[in-house]
């Protein structure tokens, strides 16, 4: 059973604490996503699990074994880098088989494993090319292939899709999910993109300045965010969040309502405001309403909703969908 356990892991660079004490268990076969804004420590945490960085304090267990002081190559992990990190002077075949040849495996075994991985990733026809001659998506697959042939217990993926264009990214999200299902391996995936987190994860770990903000399934985080930070991070467009008098009027420190949980009416409602801007996305329309007593509220309505700059509209929250944080 390949679980990954972090126990009070801390990391500081000089006087700066990057990771401020993290306890986390990732279950066998889980697709776990670390998400958070840049600088929150998610990549550092992944690198600590991989062994590329050493934790200042705390222990890491993989598969029930303490690997805190272990070499990266002995931890049973494989990693896919944001830049793919393919060796430019080696062919695809040599890239994928590099680790196996370092381990002095017999040539025919290496060949067999590389061929199998190439088959699974539809790379067979590219095996003799150098990385330079590949497209972004193909390089991405080679990087995954290189991870696969090591038969790792845990896959570590560091923003693997951020160098791809939007269309390819959507396609790779599905391919990665398929791969995870097929291999059944534990995967830890780092991203700053909440869409990737929501669409792929079994478990999302939201990190904020070196601490875990919340752990849960995607819908769990969407429905029950524990803090304004998580509430604002998960979901698009962002949740409307209000401090000060607006929140005080609701009897809390921060009051939040998601754009999709506000209804608009021309005649009556809770807040009266004037339309500042309208974005037509096709299926949906996003309305930016300026309400004098609270500032701006963003509202998502269906695509056929008609509104124009300067219109006066009423907005009301959907009952039971409001969030009050203290």
């Amino acid at each position: 059973m390949t679980s990954v356990k972090l126990k009070s892991v801390k990391k500081s660079f000089g006087a700066v604490d990057i990771i401020k004490g993290i306890d986390l268990t990732i279950e066998d076969g889980e697709f776990c996503v670390f998400v958070g804004p840049s600088g929150c420590g998610k990549s550092t945490l992944l690198r600590i699990i991989s062994g590329l960085e050493e934790a200042t304090e705390g222990t890491i267990e993989i598969d029930g074994r303490d690997v805190t002081g272990e070499e990266p190559s002995k931890r049973g992990i494989a990693m896919v880098f944001q830049s793919y990190a393919l060796y430019p002077h080696l062919t695809v075949r040599e890239n994928v088989g590099f680790g196996l040849s370092l381990a002095k495996l017999p040539k025919d075994v290496i060949r067999q494993k590389v061929d199998a991985a190439a088959e699974a990733l539809q790379l067979t026809h590219l095996l003799d090319r150098k990385p330079k001659a590949l497209s972004g998506g193909q390089r991405q697959r080679v990087a995954i292939g290189r991870a696969m042939v090591r038969d790792p217990k845990v896959f570590l993926l560091d923003e693997p899709l951020s160098n791809l264009d939007a269309a390819l990214r959507a396609q790779m999200r599905i391919e990665l999910t398929d791969l995870h299902r097929k291999l059944g391996a534990t995967m830890i995936y780092v991203t700053h993109d909440q869409v990737e987190a929501m669409t792929m994860a079994d478990k999302i770990v939201v990190l904020n300045s070196g601490r875990i903000e919340q752990v849960g399934s995607p819908m769990d985080l969407y429905n029950n965010p524990v803090s304004p930070f998580v509430a604002g991070f998960i979901g698009s467009p962002k949740m409307n969040l209000y401090d000060g008098p607006v929140a005080a009027a609701q009897g809390c420190k921060t009051y939040g309502i998601r754009p999709e949980h506000v209804v608009l009416s021309a005649t009556n409602g809770t807040w009266k405001g004037s339309v500042r801007h309208v974005e037509h996305l096709g299926a949906d329309t996003v309305v930016y309403l300026v309400v004098p007593e609270m500032g701006e509220i963003v509202v998502r309505v269906s695509g056929d909703f008609k509104a124009a700059h300067g219109d006066i509209l009423w907005a009301s929250p959907v009952a039971g969908r409001e969030f009050r944080f203290n």
């Binding site: 062994g51 050493e54 304090e57 805190t68 002081g69 070499e71």
Partner: peptide, 8 residues
């Protein structure tokens, strides 16, 4: 804490 690993 285990011993420091060797630098690459």
């Amino acid at each position: 804490m285990t011993a420091k690993r060797r630098s690459p």
